[in-house]
């Protein structure tokens, strides 16, 4: 039934286009939108990558990149060129196919997810009734793909990293979904449009349910694998975790995915808790949404620069003993105060 409700809007959409005889036009429109979104993502990832380097550098009393371009803005481009011009070395005992398709599938899924997120009421590929739920189903797949890629390389560090990835998945999906349920309780729907509409009617959900917001933000940090939850790429322990045996273009791809995922999570938090595209009218809706996503990402950067990494067992303990109960309390409180 769940699958039905996710698929049926797409199918009905598709059928209506088909009946009007312009399937090609529909496909072309979706493709054009996907390419446009890919450009938006790339620009965000690029700018975010530069801002992250600069902000962390300033926190550490350094200058960060300064030589390539104005204020080192083109540094990441130079790094990209360097990575692309290097050789990909595949270990002998690696599963070549899985190793190659892992990051590509990750990128495809991340991009697909961003296609499901409208930038404004007018700017969207398709309007799913269960939009948010669909996004969370796909988010749960990301650690699995990391598991596959890490497992495929045949490296023990990558293997440990892959296992950590799945352990993190099971302890953070649940609190996240419980908070999402509280959001749906308030807005009466999983549709992104109605979640944002409910916030402009009531208040930002970050204000309405601060506990839920805090739980969700922490769970999202874990989902993004940002410090203090970067156990998967723990450089001081696992060298580069699941990326240990990726080099050259694949490593560039992995970094790109990392930044896109930050964008994605920023968008999700902005939509669920920070009022989405609503904002003073001197700026258009999509700009507000992206600006809010960027603000969330900036907080993640500052946390990254200043904290040490958590230990695996503590991360699991935090997930099960703190986040899950708090998420449930948040759900109950939300029900008592706003529904009952």
């Amino acid at each position: 039934m769940l699958i039905d409700s996710i698929v049926s809007p797409i199918v009905s959409d598709w059928q209506s286009w088909l009946s009007s005889g312009s399937l090609l036009l529909y496909a072309a429109a979706i493709l054009a939108y996907a390419i446009a979104m890919l450009i938006v993502i790339s620009v965000f990832a690029y700018v975010f990558g530069w801002v992250e380097r600069k902000v962390i550098a300033r926190i550490q009393h350094r200058h960060g990149p300064t030589y390539v371009g104005k204020y080192g803005f083109l540094q990441n481009l130079a790094d990209l060129v360097k990575l692309l011009s290097k050789e990909q070395i595949t270990p002998e005992n690696a599963d070549r196919v899985l190793l190659a398709i892992g990051p590509i599938l990750l990128l495809a899924l991340t991009t697909f997810m961003i296609l499901l997120i409208p930038l404004s009421p007018a700017l969207q590929a398709t309007d799913l009734g269960l939009g948010m739920l669909a996004i969370f189903i796909i988010i749960a797949f990301l650690p699995l793909l990391v598991f596959v890629s890490g497992f495929a390389s045949g490296n023990k560090f990558a293997d440990i990293s892959a296992q950590r990835s799945v352990l993190m998945l099971i302890s953070y999906e649940l609190p996240m979904l419980v908070v999402l349920a509280a959001v749906a309780l308030l807005s009466g729907s999983y549709s992104i449009g109605s979640i944002i509409a409910a916030q402009s009617g009531l208040a930002w959900f970050a204000v309405v349910m601060p506990i839920g917001f805090a739980v969700f933000f922490v769970a999202m940090l874990a989902e993004m694998e940002r410090p203090p939850f970067d156990l998967r790429e723990a450089d001081s322990e696992l060298i580069a975790g699941w990326l240990t045996d990726y080099s050259a273009p694949y490593y560039a791809l992995a970094l790109f995915i990392d930044y896109t995922r930050v964008f994605l999570i920023g968008l999700v938090i902005a939509i669920l808790f920070l009022g989405g595209w609503s904002g003073p009218s001197f700026l258009p809706g999509p700009v507000w949404l992206i600006a809010k996503a960027f603000a969330v990402a900036l907080v993640a950067i500052v946390i990254r620069a200043t904290t040490v990494r958590m230990r695996l067992d503590r991360v699991l303990r935090l997930g099960w003993l703190w986040l899950l109960p708090l998420a449930l309390i948040n759900l109950i409180l939300t029900y008592i105060i706003f529904v009952a």
């Binding site: 550490q60 009393h61 410090p227 203090p228 723990a234 001081s236 990254r304 200043t306 040490v308 990494r309």
Partner: peptide, 17 residues
């Protein structure tokens, strides 16, 4: 020590200053 525990060179840089 902070680097070994996964911090991203912040205390290291401050200490080096």
């Amino acid at each position: 020590l902070c680097n070994d525990m996964g911090q991203m060179f912040t205390t290291f840089m401050w200490g080096f200053e």
